[in-house]
Nucleic acid binder design. Structure first.
Lengths: 186, 186
DNA sequence: GTCTATACGACGATAGAC
DNA sequence: GTCTATCGTCGTATAGAC
Protein backbone atom coordinates (compact mmCIF):
# COMPACT_ATOMS: atom_id res chain seq x y z
CA UNK A 1 0.00 0.00 0.00
CA UNK A 2 2.21 2.77 1.31
CA UNK A 3 5.79 3.15 0.17
CA UNK A 4 8.25 2.61 2.96
CA UNK A 5 11.47 4.64 3.30
CA UNK A 6 13.30 1.60 1.98
CA UNK A 7 11.06 1.49 -1.09
CA UNK A 8 11.63 5.16 -1.75
CA UNK A 9 15.37 4.89 -1.45
CA UNK A 10 15.47 1.91 -3.76
CA UNK A 11 13.32 3.79 -6.27
CA UNK A 12 15.62 6.77 -6.25
CA UNK A 13 18.64 4.57 -6.81
CA UNK A 14 16.90 2.90 -9.75
CA UNK A 15 15.94 6.28 -11.20
CA UNK A 16 19.50 7.51 -10.91
CA UNK A 17 20.88 4.37 -12.55
CA UNK A 18 18.46 4.70 -15.47
CA UNK A 19 19.25 8.37 -15.85
CA UNK A 20 22.99 7.72 -15.88
CA UNK A 21 22.61 4.93 -18.43
CA UNK A 22 20.44 7.12 -20.65
CA UNK A 23 22.83 10.07 -20.40
CA UNK A 24 25.68 7.87 -21.55
CA UNK A 25 23.99 5.82 -24.26
CA UNK A 26 21.95 8.61 -25.84
CA UNK A 27 25.04 10.83 -26.11
CA UNK A 28 27.07 7.98 -27.57
CA UNK A 29 24.61 6.40 -30.00
CA UNK A 30 21.76 8.89 -30.39
CA UNK A 31 18.05 8.58 -29.69
CA UNK A 32 17.07 6.19 -32.43
CA UNK A 33 19.92 3.73 -31.99
CA UNK A 34 19.47 3.46 -28.24
CA UNK A 35 16.60 1.20 -27.21
CA UNK A 36 14.79 1.18 -23.90
CA UNK A 37 16.07 -2.35 -23.47
CA UNK A 38 19.66 -1.15 -24.00
CA UNK A 39 19.25 1.44 -21.28
CA UNK A 40 17.71 -1.06 -18.90
CA UNK A 41 20.53 -3.52 -19.46
CA UNK A 42 23.17 -0.81 -18.89
CA UNK A 43 21.39 0.30 -15.72
CA UNK A 44 20.92 -3.27 -14.52
CA UNK A 45 17.16 -2.94 -14.19
CA UNK A 46 14.01 -4.28 -15.79
CA UNK A 47 13.03 -2.57 -19.10
CA UNK A 48 9.56 -1.78 -17.79
CA UNK A 49 11.08 0.37 -15.07
CA UNK A 50 12.54 2.77 -17.62
CA UNK A 51 9.07 3.69 -18.80
CA UNK A 52 7.58 3.48 -15.32
CA UNK A 53 10.02 6.08 -13.98
CA UNK A 54 10.24 8.41 -16.98
CA UNK A 55 6.88 7.91 -18.75
CA UNK A 56 8.48 7.52 -22.17
CA UNK A 57 11.81 7.07 -23.91
CA UNK A 58 11.44 10.57 -25.36
CA UNK A 59 11.05 12.20 -21.93
CA UNK A 60 14.11 10.43 -20.60
CA UNK A 61 16.01 11.62 -23.65
CA UNK A 62 15.07 15.27 -23.19
CA UNK A 63 15.67 15.18 -19.45
CA UNK A 64 19.04 13.57 -20.00
CA UNK A 65 20.42 15.52 -22.96
CA UNK A 66 21.58 18.63 -21.17
CA UNK A 67 24.91 19.96 -19.98
CA UNK A 68 25.94 21.58 -16.75
CA UNK A 69 28.85 23.25 -18.57
CA UNK A 70 26.97 26.50 -19.23
CA UNK A 71 27.16 27.98 -22.71
CA UNK A 72 26.21 31.32 -21.18
CA UNK A 73 29.86 32.30 -21.02
CA UNK A 74 30.09 32.41 -24.80
CA UNK A 75 28.28 35.75 -24.91
CA UNK A 76 30.76 37.40 -22.58
CA UNK A 77 33.71 39.60 -23.47
CA UNK A 78 34.16 42.87 -25.36
CA UNK A 79 31.34 43.56 -27.82
CA UNK A 80 33.73 44.62 -30.59
CA UNK A 81 35.21 41.12 -30.84
CA UNK A 82 32.23 39.11 -29.66
CA UNK A 83 31.73 37.48 -33.06
CA UNK A 84 35.06 35.72 -32.96
CA UNK A 85 34.73 35.05 -29.24
CA UNK A 86 31.38 33.31 -29.70
CA UNK A 87 32.68 31.02 -32.42
CA UNK A 88 35.84 30.28 -30.45
CA UNK A 89 33.92 29.71 -27.21
CA UNK A 90 31.46 27.37 -28.89
CA UNK A 91 34.06 25.31 -30.72
CA UNK A 92 35.98 24.94 -27.47
CA UNK A 93 33.07 23.40 -25.60
CA UNK A 94 33.35 20.01 -23.92
CA UNK A 95 33.16 16.77 -25.81
CA UNK A 96 29.94 15.98 -23.98
CA UNK A 97 28.41 19.31 -25.07
CA UNK A 98 29.11 18.42 -28.70
CA UNK A 99 27.60 14.98 -28.34
CA UNK A 100 24.50 16.34 -26.62
CA UNK A 101 24.08 18.99 -29.31
CA UNK A 102 24.42 16.41 -32.05
CA UNK A 103 22.06 13.95 -30.40
CA UNK A 104 19.40 16.64 -29.93
CA UNK A 105 19.66 17.92 -33.49
CA UNK A 106 19.54 14.44 -34.97
CA UNK A 107 16.38 13.71 -32.98
CA UNK A 108 14.58 16.79 -34.29
CA UNK A 109 11.94 14.52 -35.79
CA UNK A 110 10.25 14.75 -32.39
CA UNK A 111 8.37 17.93 -31.63
CA UNK A 112 9.24 17.99 -27.94
CA UNK A 113 12.91 17.74 -28.85
CA UNK A 114 12.58 20.71 -31.17
CA UNK A 115 10.97 22.67 -28.35
CA UNK A 116 13.81 21.73 -26.03
CA UNK A 117 16.33 22.92 -28.62
CA UNK A 118 14.52 26.24 -29.04
CA UNK A 119 14.36 26.74 -25.27
CA UNK A 120 18.07 25.99 -24.89
CA UNK A 121 18.91 28.44 -27.67
CA UNK A 122 16.95 31.18 -25.99
CA UNK A 123 18.25 30.52 -22.51
CA UNK A 124 21.93 30.18 -23.40
CA UNK A 125 22.40 32.44 -26.42
CA UNK A 126 19.53 34.64 -27.56
CA UNK A 127 18.36 36.12 -24.25
CA UNK A 128 21.78 36.92 -22.74
CA UNK A 129 23.03 38.26 -26.06
CA UNK A 130 19.96 40.44 -26.67
CA UNK A 131 20.53 42.05 -23.28
CA UNK A 132 23.97 43.19 -24.41
CA UNK A 133 23.01 44.50 -27.85
CA UNK A 134 22.01 48.08 -28.51
CA UNK A 135 20.45 49.64 -31.58
CA UNK A 136 17.55 48.49 -33.74
CA UNK A 137 15.93 45.05 -33.46
CA UNK A 138 18.24 43.83 -30.70
CA UNK A 139 16.05 40.80 -29.98
CA UNK A 140 15.88 39.79 -33.63
CA UNK A 141 19.58 40.31 -34.26
CA UNK A 142 20.38 38.11 -31.27
CA UNK A 143 18.11 35.39 -32.66
CA UNK A 144 19.80 35.64 -36.06
CA UNK A 145 23.26 35.40 -34.52
CA UNK A 146 22.07 32.23 -32.80
CA UNK A 147 20.80 30.94 -36.15
CA UNK A 148 24.18 31.66 -37.72
CA UNK A 149 26.01 29.87 -34.96
CA UNK A 150 23.73 26.86 -35.25
CA UNK A 151 24.38 26.83 -38.99
CA UNK A 152 28.07 26.35 -38.36
CA UNK A 153 27.52 23.74 -35.65
CA UNK A 154 25.16 21.74 -37.84
CA UNK A 155 27.63 21.69 -40.69
CA UNK A 156 30.47 20.81 -38.36
CA UNK A 157 28.93 18.45 -35.83
CA UNK A 158 25.61 17.18 -37.14
CA UNK A 159 26.14 16.84 -40.91
CA UNK A 160 29.91 16.60 -40.59
CA UNK A 161 30.56 18.11 -44.00
CA UNK A 162 34.17 17.31 -44.81
CA UNK A 163 34.65 20.59 -46.67
CA UNK A 164 34.31 22.36 -43.31
CA UNK A 165 35.46 19.81 -40.73
CA UNK A 166 38.94 19.72 -42.18
CA UNK A 167 39.40 23.49 -41.94
CA UNK A 168 41.63 24.64 -39.03
CA UNK A 169 39.63 26.03 -36.13
CA UNK A 170 41.45 29.39 -36.19
CA UNK A 171 40.35 30.02 -39.77
CA UNK A 172 36.73 29.24 -38.92
CA UNK A 173 36.91 31.60 -35.96
CA UNK A 174 38.27 34.47 -38.06
CA UNK A 175 36.01 34.04 -41.08
CA UNK A 176 32.74 33.08 -39.42
CA UNK A 177 33.37 35.46 -36.54
CA UNK A 178 33.35 38.36 -39.01
CA UNK A 179 29.93 37.30 -40.21
CA UNK A 180 28.51 37.15 -36.68
CA UNK A 181 30.06 40.52 -35.89
CA UNK A 182 27.98 42.22 -38.57
CA UNK A 183 24.74 41.36 -36.78
CA UNK A 184 26.23 42.08 -33.37
CA UNK A 185 27.23 45.57 -34.52
CA UNK A 186 23.82 46.15 -36.09
CA UNK B 1 11.12 -17.43 -66.24
CA UNK B 2 11.49 -14.53 -68.64
CA UNK B 3 9.85 -11.20 -68.00
CA UNK B 4 7.19 -10.37 -70.53
CA UNK B 5 6.54 -6.80 -71.70
CA UNK B 6 3.35 -6.94 -69.66
CA UNK B 7 5.29 -7.85 -66.51
CA UNK B 8 7.71 -5.01 -67.00
CA UNK B 9 5.00 -2.46 -67.64
CA UNK B 10 3.11 -3.59 -64.56
CA UNK B 11 6.25 -3.34 -62.48
CA UNK B 12 6.99 0.15 -63.65
CA UNK B 13 3.47 1.29 -62.86
CA UNK B 14 3.77 -0.16 -59.36
CA UNK B 15 7.14 1.51 -58.87
CA UNK B 16 5.72 4.85 -59.99
CA UNK B 17 2.72 4.51 -57.68
CA UNK B 18 4.95 3.72 -54.70
CA UNK B 19 7.27 6.58 -55.54
CA UNK B 20 4.39 9.03 -55.82
CA UNK B 21 2.89 7.86 -52.53
CA UNK B 22 6.26 8.16 -50.81
CA UNK B 23 6.90 11.61 -52.25
CA UNK B 24 3.58 12.83 -50.90
CA UNK B 25 3.53 11.13 -47.50
CA UNK B 26 7.18 11.70 -46.57
CA UNK B 27 6.88 15.42 -47.41
CA UNK B 28 3.66 15.72 -45.45
CA UNK B 29 4.40 13.65 -42.35
CA UNK B 30 8.15 13.09 -42.35
CA UNK B 31 10.21 9.90 -42.41
CA UNK B 32 9.44 8.56 -38.96
CA UNK B 33 5.70 9.15 -39.03
CA UNK B 34 5.25 7.52 -42.42
CA UNK B 35 5.23 3.72 -42.30
CA UNK B 36 5.91 1.38 -45.18
CA UNK B 37 2.36 0.13 -44.73
CA UNK B 38 1.01 3.71 -45.05
CA UNK B 39 2.83 4.12 -48.35
CA UNK B 40 1.61 0.77 -49.63
CA UNK B 41 -1.98 1.63 -48.75
CA UNK B 42 -1.73 5.04 -50.45
CA UNK B 43 -0.23 3.41 -53.53
CA UNK B 44 -2.83 0.63 -53.52
CA UNK B 45 -0.17 -2.02 -53.35
CA UNK B 46 1.06 -4.82 -51.09
CA UNK B 47 3.49 -3.60 -48.37
CA UNK B 48 6.13 -6.13 -49.37
CA UNK B 49 6.37 -4.50 -52.78
CA UNK B 50 7.64 -1.27 -51.28
CA UNK B 51 10.74 -3.05 -50.03
CA UNK B 52 10.97 -5.29 -53.09
CA UNK B 53 11.16 -2.29 -55.42
CA UNK B 54 13.22 0.13 -53.30
CA UNK B 55 15.24 -2.19 -51.02
CA UNK B 56 14.48 -0.15 -47.90
CA UNK B 57 12.26 2.60 -46.56
CA UNK B 58 15.34 4.81 -46.21
CA UNK B 59 16.31 4.44 -49.88
CA UNK B 60 12.81 5.31 -51.00
CA UNK B 61 12.94 8.36 -48.74
CA UNK B 62 16.21 9.64 -50.16
CA UNK B 63 15.21 8.93 -53.75
CA UNK B 64 11.91 10.70 -53.17
CA UNK B 65 12.94 13.75 -51.17
CA UNK B 66 14.27 15.91 -53.97
CA UNK B 67 12.95 18.84 -55.95
CA UNK B 68 13.06 19.60 -59.63
CA UNK B 69 12.71 23.31 -58.82
CA UNK B 70 16.45 24.00 -58.90
CA UNK B 71 17.95 26.05 -56.09
CA UNK B 72 20.84 26.84 -58.39
CA UNK B 73 19.21 30.12 -59.35
CA UNK B 74 19.68 31.49 -55.86
CA UNK B 75 23.39 32.11 -56.51
CA UNK B 76 22.70 34.26 -59.57
CA UNK B 77 22.59 38.05 -59.80
CA UNK B 78 25.02 40.86 -59.05
CA UNK B 79 27.70 39.88 -56.54
CA UNK B 80 27.37 43.12 -54.59
CA UNK B 81 23.82 42.25 -53.49
CA UNK B 82 24.06 38.47 -53.60
CA UNK B 83 23.62 38.16 -49.83
CA UNK B 84 20.14 39.60 -49.87
CA UNK B 85 19.32 37.85 -53.13
CA UNK B 86 20.24 34.45 -51.70
CA UNK B 87 18.06 34.90 -48.64
CA UNK B 88 15.18 36.25 -50.73
CA UNK B 89 15.52 33.51 -53.33
CA UNK B 90 15.59 30.79 -50.71
CA UNK B 91 12.63 32.08 -48.73
CA UNK B 92 10.64 32.34 -51.96
CA UNK B 93 11.09 28.69 -52.84
CA UNK B 94 8.13 26.41 -53.44
CA UNK B 95 6.10 24.92 -50.65
CA UNK B 96 7.31 21.49 -51.68
CA UNK B 97 10.94 22.62 -51.44
CA UNK B 98 10.36 23.72 -47.85
CA UNK B 99 8.69 20.44 -46.94
CA UNK B 100 11.45 18.41 -48.53
CA UNK B 101 14.12 20.43 -46.74
CA UNK B 102 12.34 20.01 -43.43
CA UNK B 103 11.78 16.28 -43.90
CA UNK B 104 15.44 15.72 -44.79
CA UNK B 105 16.75 17.73 -41.85
CA UNK B 106 14.44 16.04 -39.39
CA UNK B 107 15.62 12.64 -40.62
CA UNK B 108 19.28 13.48 -40.05
CA UNK B 109 19.50 10.59 -37.59
CA UNK B 110 20.28 8.44 -40.64
CA UNK B 111 23.76 8.68 -42.06
CA UNK B 112 22.73 8.28 -45.68
CA UNK B 113 20.30 11.15 -45.24
CA UNK B 114 23.08 13.36 -43.90
CA UNK B 115 25.19 12.44 -46.92
CA UNK B 116 22.32 13.34 -49.23
CA UNK B 117 21.97 16.71 -47.48
CA UNK B 118 25.68 17.42 -47.83
CA UNK B 119 25.62 16.46 -51.51
CA UNK B 120 22.61 18.70 -52.17
CA UNK B 121 24.32 21.61 -50.40
CA UNK B 122 27.40 21.24 -52.52
CA UNK B 123 25.57 20.80 -55.80
CA UNK B 124 23.06 23.61 -55.36
CA UNK B 125 24.89 26.20 -53.27
CA UNK B 126 28.55 25.68 -52.45
CA UNK B 127 29.96 24.68 -55.85
CA UNK B 128 28.14 27.27 -57.99
CA UNK B 129 28.83 29.99 -55.43
CA UNK B 130 32.52 29.13 -55.08
CA UNK B 131 32.86 29.49 -58.85
CA UNK B 132 31.70 33.09 -58.59
CA UNK B 133 33.79 34.16 -55.61
CA UNK B 134 37.20 35.71 -55.92
CA UNK B 135 39.83 36.37 -53.27
CA UNK B 136 41.12 34.18 -50.48
CA UNK B 137 39.54 30.85 -49.48
CA UNK B 138 36.74 31.03 -52.04
CA UNK B 139 35.77 27.40 -51.50
CA UNK B 140 35.64 27.78 -47.72
CA UNK B 141 33.75 31.05 -47.83
CA UNK B 142 31.14 29.46 -50.10
CA UNK B 143 30.75 26.57 -47.65
CA UNK B 144 30.34 29.01 -44.76
CA UNK B 145 27.71 31.02 -46.63
CA UNK B 146 25.85 27.76 -47.14
CA UNK B 147 26.18 27.03 -43.42
CA UNK B 148 24.77 30.45 -42.60
CA UNK B 149 21.85 29.97 -44.94
CA UNK B 150 21.09 26.58 -43.45
CA UNK B 151 21.18 28.14 -40.00
CA UNK B 152 18.36 30.47 -40.97
CA UNK B 153 16.35 27.71 -42.67
CA UNK B 154 16.69 25.42 -39.68
CA UNK B 155 15.46 28.09 -37.32
CA UNK B 156 12.64 29.01 -39.66
CA UNK B 157 11.49 25.71 -41.13
CA UNK B 158 12.87 22.87 -39.04
CA UNK B 159 12.80 24.20 -35.47
CA UNK B 160 10.15 26.79 -36.23
CA UNK B 161 11.36 29.19 -33.54
CA UNK B 162 8.55 31.68 -33.06
CA UNK B 163 10.97 34.51 -32.35
CA UNK B 164 12.04 34.30 -36.00
CA UNK B 165 9.02 32.88 -37.84
CA UNK B 166 6.91 35.89 -36.94
CA UNK B 167 9.43 38.38 -38.35
CA UNK B 168 8.45 39.87 -41.75
CA UNK B 169 10.36 38.31 -44.63
CA UNK B 170 11.73 41.66 -45.82
CA UNK B 171 13.41 42.26 -42.48
CA UNK B 172 15.04 38.83 -42.55
CA UNK B 173 16.28 39.47 -46.07
CA UNK B 174 17.85 42.80 -45.14
CA UNK B 175 19.43 41.75 -41.84
CA UNK B 176 20.56 38.24 -42.67
CA UNK B 177 21.54 39.26 -46.20
CA UNK B 178 24.08 41.68 -44.71
CA UNK B 179 25.67 38.84 -42.78
CA UNK B 180 25.96 36.63 -45.86
CA UNK B 181 27.40 39.53 -47.85
CA UNK B 182 30.40 39.78 -45.54
CA UNK B 183 31.58 36.30 -46.50
CA UNK B 184 30.68 36.81 -50.15
CA UNK B 185 32.82 39.96 -50.26
CA UNK B 186 35.67 38.23 -48.47
C1' DG C 1 9.86 -11.10 -63.90
C1' DT C 2 5.50 -9.27 -60.62
C1' DC C 3 2.83 -10.08 -56.93
C1' DT C 4 0.33 -12.27 -52.48
C1' DA C 5 0.51 -14.15 -48.10
C1' DT C 6 2.72 -14.92 -44.11
C1' DA C 7 6.12 -14.63 -40.83
C1' DC C 8 10.20 -12.90 -38.10
C1' DG C 9 12.51 -10.34 -34.67
C1' DA C 10 12.76 -5.89 -32.40
C1' DC C 11 10.59 -2.08 -30.77
C1' DG C 12 7.89 1.22 -27.15
C1' DA C 13 4.56 0.73 -23.99
C1' DT C 14 1.04 -1.32 -20.58
C1' DA C 15 -1.73 -4.35 -17.12
C1' DG C 16 -1.64 -6.76 -13.27
C1' DA C 17 0.47 -9.90 -9.95
C1' DC C 18 3.83 -9.75 -6.18
C1' DG D 1 8.57 -0.24 -6.46
C1' DT D 2 9.29 -4.12 -9.14
C1' DC D 3 8.69 -7.83 -12.49
C1' DT D 4 6.37 -10.97 -15.91
C1' DA D 5 3.80 -11.44 -19.71
C1' DT D 6 1.99 -9.44 -23.46
C1' DC D 7 0.11 -6.04 -26.83
C1' DG D 8 0.22 -3.69 -31.24
C1' DT D 9 3.34 -1.84 -34.58
C1' DC D 10 7.28 -1.51 -37.05
C1' DG D 11 10.87 -2.63 -41.11
C1' DT D 12 12.05 -6.40 -43.59
C1' DA D 13 12.52 -11.21 -45.71
C1' DT D 14 10.86 -15.03 -48.26
C1' DA D 15 8.09 -18.98 -50.23
C1' DG D 16 5.27 -19.77 -53.70
C1' DA D 17 1.37 -18.49 -56.98
C1' DC D 18 0.87 -16.28 -61.45
Amino acid sequence: MHSTPTDRRRGEATRAAIRAAGARLFAEHGFQDTSVRDIAREAGVDPALVIRHFRSKERLFIETMSVEDPARSIVEGPLEQLGEAMVAGTLARSDRAKKVYTALMRAADHEEVRDAIARANHATVIAPLARRLSGHDAQLRAALVSAQLNGLLNTLWMIEDEAVTRVPTEVLITEYGRALQVLIDG
